[in-house]
Design a protein around this nucleic acid. Sequence first.
DNA 1: CATGAAAGTAACTCTCG
DNA 2: CGAGAGTTACTTTCATG
Lengths: 163, 163
Amino acid sequence: MTETNECDHYDSRILAELQQDARITMAELGRRVHLSQPAVTERVRKLELSGVIKGYRAEVDLARLGYGIRAIIRVARAEYARVVRLIEQTPEVINAYNVTGDDSWVLEIAVIDVSHLDAVVTKFCILTETSTCIVLNAPRENAMVLPARRENIKPAIKKVTGK
Amino acid sequence: MTETNECDHYDSRILAELQQDARITMAELGRRVHLSQPAVTERVRKLELSGVIKGYRAEVDLARLGYGIRAIIRVARAEYARVVRLIEQTPEVINAYNVTGDDSWVLEIAVIDVSHLDAVVTKFCILTETSTCIVLNAPRENAMVLPARRENIKPAIKKVTGK
DNA sequence: CATGAAAGTAACTCTCG
DNA sequence: CGAGAGTTACTTTCATG
C-alpha cells in the first residue's frame, strides 16, 4: 500500500470539488475537471476503493439543531477502555481524540445549554480530572485537504542555517 | 427565526441518512424514509434553505493523502486579528476554535511528519505560548448529530436532589 | 405524469511499456 | 502486442415542472 496513492492532478481537482460539494453529479464533476463522465466516475470509484475518500457527509448547523453550546473537554489519563466506553455512551461527543501528553483525551462536544453541559462534563469528571472550555467561534471548520506535497511546506522564518 | 426549526421525525431521518451518505439519490432517500421522491426533495431543499444543512462534503483519509501526523495545538491569548490572519495563512489547520479560558485557541492540524509539525508549531510559537499534543487515535470522528431533544439528555447520577 | 438530464454499460481508440 | 485509461453511443433511472 503506497502512502500517497499516486494522486495526479486530476485526482486532486476531483478531491477539491467533492470536498466543496459532495452532491454534484458525475457529469458536472467531469465538466469541471475536463474529463468525460465515465472517466471521472471511474476515478472517484478508485479513490473510494483505495480509502482516500472515506465517505460523503451532510454538514449540519449545530445551533440550528438546538445545540447552543459547543465545548472542548480535556480529560486526564484514565483507564483507556473505560474512557472509550463512556464516549460510546455519550452522543454529545462529536469528536474524540486520544492524544499524547498529560491530558490523554480531547473531546469536542455539542450540548443544548449550560445544564446539559454540566450533565456531560460530570460524566467524565467521575472518571478523572477534566478541563472544559467553551467554543466562542470557529474561523475555520473542516477545511479542505489536498494531497500532501512536500514542496508546499512554507517553513517558518527561523532558518538559522549558518554553516 | 426559530431555533429548533420544527424538525419532525421525517426531517430527523433525512438528516441521519444524509450524514451517513450524502450522495444517495433523492429517490433512494425517499425509499429509506418512506416518503415520495418529490416530498423528500422538497424537505431537503427546505433544510438547505433554512441553513440546517450547511453543505455536503467528501470525507478524506488524511494518512492516505500523505499526512502522517495529526496534532492539537493550544495557543495562549494573543491579538485576535493576528491569530486569525496566521490561521488563514496556514492550510495545515483543519479546525480552529476560539475558546474561553487561558488557552484562547484550540487548533487541529494535519502535517506530513515531525519536521513539518515543527514548521507549523513554530509559526504560532512566534506569536505567543503554545502547547502541542499529537493525536494517537480517534475513536469518534465527525459523529452524526440529530436535532436536540431535551428528553434525550441522560443526567449523570449526581442527583443530590434532597428537598 | 412527462420531459430532460445523469448514471451505468458496452464497444472502440489511443498511448505506453 | 497487451494493459490501462479515455471517449462516444446507448439504455435505464432520476430530477423537476
